[in-house]
Amino acid sequence: MLTEIKNQFYQDTLETLISIQEVLPETPLEGETARNMVERIFTVSHQVSGTGPMLGFDNSSLLSKKLERTFYEIRSGKRTLTAQLLTQTQRTIQNLLEVLQKEQGE
């Protein structure tokens, strides 16, 4: 059962991250689209950092916490999403994907 949940979690997270990666722009967006994007990244990073350790994705969770923290700040208006941040986010998501795959044993 646990393996199944784990696989499901892994698949879902992978898909979400890839889909985010695909649409992540190079320059900051404005308005509704931007808010949606921030919300999506926050949600997925929140999920990974929360559920990850339970399923053995320890490193992914650590990495994800950083995204979570940063996007929490953006979400609550304490930080602005700059082009530089987008670049770093893109990198970190790529890292997260790799770490996830490593921890899943793929």
């Binding site: 490193n59 530089q84 790529q94 890292n95």
Partner: peptide
């Protein structure tokens, strides 16, 4: 360990 490549950061 977390897959960070410091060279990317230097590039940036």
């Amino acid at each position: 360990q977390n897959g960070t490549n410091p060279l990317y950061l230097l590039d940036d």
